[in-house]
Design a protein around this nucleic acid. Structure first.
Length: 574
RNA sequence: GGUCCCGUAGCUCAACUGGAUAGAGCACCUGACUUCUAAUCAGGGGGUUGGGGGUUCGAGUCCUCCCGGGAUCGCCA
């Protein structure tokens, strides 16, 4: 139940009445009419811009429209007052009962309060992580994993039918490198001295893989040429790496619905089919690309390649899909993969990439637009870098120096809940500072702690009440103080916030909302503790207490629902 | 050089996609608090939203040109 949407519907109906009665011209477009909370709460509970939006098309003064609209709205029992203000805002003051009624739904519906039908069951595919299967996940992947997962949960909560998907890049040359690295570890397991050269991966995590390979094949690959073992070790190593990644994800609480293998596309004819689809639309041709403007690479020479005419769909240059030796570029199987997603019938696609893939966005969008004939929208969310700090000092990651911070390192130190919440306190496209010491500290400036603490306070009040034999299952609020009013309104805003966050694909809004909700609870809590014992959730007068407890429960329920979307376990005790 | 992202209080960041006087936390100043689970709560000071121009009733938000930071730029994936 989104009260703002309901009042907006009321406004639109009133506008149509005005049209019918001849006070407004017929057929006005009400799409831009909004009903929002005013910036200053003194202005009222809600404000609508209807008069200003319609002034021009109606050829009327905004204040005149607002004047005509006001009585229509106050005729509704939910609206106590409607005042024209400023350039033509209409400020609405609602009957206090209305807010309480909305918040009361939290008592009846529990954590389903706020669940929306906005998505109407539309099928959305969210692709995230998709890290190369060559090693454990690191902090950069962690952010993408947390963001993608929270976004998926948010969309599901908002009524979409969501698929969480991971694209395994197991088709390219980096898997050969992985196989050779594992072969070295395999030799090592047989007691040989080895050197990690030619860019092979020196990480310790391949030691057990080499040993496992020894257990499996014994000495069969010793002194054998690459042609004998490469294929087999590729598969063996990829499987081992995916096991590693899956367990990393599980430690973070991420469960994928689909793992889609790039390699499975090769030799299946599906790459060719996707390219043929583009070719039939006259978007594939042989040609030579211009050299990049400005700095031209030293070894640049004109080269004829097979190109995708992505410029027809807003890209800056056409993109190669085949190398000069005829092999596919990375882009080709990715086109086929997205072709597959389109043909699986999704209503919308979302890709979550790291910031280093920024240059890849336009061509991917072009491909999806072409393949789906503009029917399937693709939104690409880029997650920016994570900067790590310890004791306020930044520390650099380097694969070569071995100071390579993995997802495991982070989780082992601060736990999955803290990791997730902190990474969701930022917009995806803003860089993120992650300080190992700050995120586990207590206090107001640590949002994770602060929100969790608010949750435990509510639960604790409810527990104490149970012990004292006070009923905690009341279904109405006793609202007497502005601090309580604010909290109730905040709770009532939850369903609207879910819809905004889902519409913009921005889960960080949920985190910020929870922080504000926690703050409103803390205000009331301190007030009741210090001056107004009659406002306490648990107090001497059991009848009053029973009337105050529902507010604690509603707050707890909303925090719990919000944290669950973010993938954070609501704390029972701290 | 092209493209994309970012630039908001001393610091870290919001701002409901074009709404009213740009908001929080930290830090600073003043006050409350032996607590329903402590690390809090109330109030105050602090701003030319990087800069110029434009669009309109109205711009941090959209357009344009600069400045600064980051990412990326044909046989890596």
């Amino acid at each position: 139940m989104n009260l703002f949407a309901e009042i907006r519907a009321l406004v639109v109906t009133a506008l149509h009445d005005l049209e019918t009665e001849g006070h407004l011209p017929e057929g006005l477009d009400t799409a831009h009419v909004a009903v929002e909370p005013p910036r200053d709460p003194l202005h009222g509970d809600m404000a609508t811009n209807a008069a200003m939006v319609l002034a021009k098309p109606a050829k009327m003064k905004p204040r005149d429209i607002a004047q005509a609209l006001a009585p229509k709205l106050t005729a509704d029992p939910r609206v106590d007052a409607a005042e024209v203000a400023g350039p033509g805002f209409l400020n609405l003051r609602l009957n206090p009962k209305v807010w309480a009624d909305v918040a009361r739904a939290a008592l009846a519906q529990g954590t389903d309060f706020g669940r929306s039908s906005m998505g109407a069951g539309q099928r959305v595919n969210v692709e995230y992580v998709s890290a190369n299967p060559t090693g454990p996940l690191h902090v950069g992947h962690t952010r993408g994993a947390v963001f993608g997962d929270a976004l998926a949960s948010l969309l599901a909560y908002a009524g979409f039918d969501v698929t969480r998907e991971y694209y395994i890049n197991d088709g390219g040359g980096q898997v050969d490198v992985l196989a050779r690295s594992v072969y070295l570890r395999y030799l090592e397991a047989h007691g040989q001295e080895v050197a990690f050269v030619d860019g092979t991966y020196p990480g310790d995590y391949l030691v057990p893989v080499g040993e496992a390979l020894k257990t499996k094949v014994g000495g069969a690959y010793l002194n054998a040429p690459e042609s004998v073992w490469l294929q087999d070790i590729r598969e063996f190593a990829t499987a081992a790496m995916m096991d590693l990644i899956r367990s990393d994800l599980l430690a973070l609480g991420v469960k994928m619905d689909v793992f889609y293998s790039e390699k499975s596309l090769y030799g299946s004819g599906r790459i060719e089919a996707a390219i043929d689809d583009l070719r039939s639309k006259n978007l594939i041709y042989r040609g030579t690309l211009e050299p990049p403007k400005g700095k031209v690479p030293e070894d640049w020479e004109p080269r004829e390649q097979t190109l995708f005419r992505s410029t027809d769909y807003g890209d800056d240059v056409d993109r190669p899909i085949q190398k000069s030796d005829g092999a596919w570029t990375y882009f080709a199987p990715d086109i086929a993969y997205h072709y597959d997603k389109v043909s699986r019938g999704y209503d919308a696609l979302i890709d979550v990439f790291g910031a280093d893939h920024g240059g890849y966005v336009k061509r991917m969008k072009a491909a999806v637009a072409a393949l789906s004939e503009n029917r399937t929208p693709l939104d690409v969310k880029l997650t920016q870098l994570v900067k790590l700090y310890k004791n306020g000092e930044p520390f650099k990651m380097s694969k070569r120096a071995g100071t390579f911070v993995t997802l495991r390192d982070v989780i082992d130190q601060v736990g999955p809940d803290v990791t997730r919440f902190v990474m969701l306190m930022r917009k995806n496209d803003a860089p993120l500072d992650f300080d190992f010491d700050k995120v586990v500290a207590g206090g107001r400036d640590n949002p994770v702690w602060y929100v969790q603490y608010a949750h435990t306070r509510c639960l604790s009040a409810l527990r104490n009440a149970e012990k004292a034999g006070i009923p905690t299952n009341g279904t109405d609020f006793l609202i007497e103080d502005p601090a309580e009013e604010r909290l109730v309104q905040k709770i009532a805003e939850w369903p609207r916030l879910v819809e905004i966050a889902a519409r913009t694909n921005e889960p960080h809004r949920v985190a910020f909302y929870l922080y504000e909700l926690a703050s409103d609870l803390a205000t009331l809590y301190t007030l009741a503790t210090q001056d107004r014992h009659d406002l306490r959730f648990v107090q001497e007068d059991k009848t009053r207490s029973a009337a105050k407890l529902p507010l604690a429960r509603a707050t707890q329920v909303v925090i719990s629902a919000g944290l669950s979307i973010l993938g954070v376990t609501p704390a029972e005790e701290m």
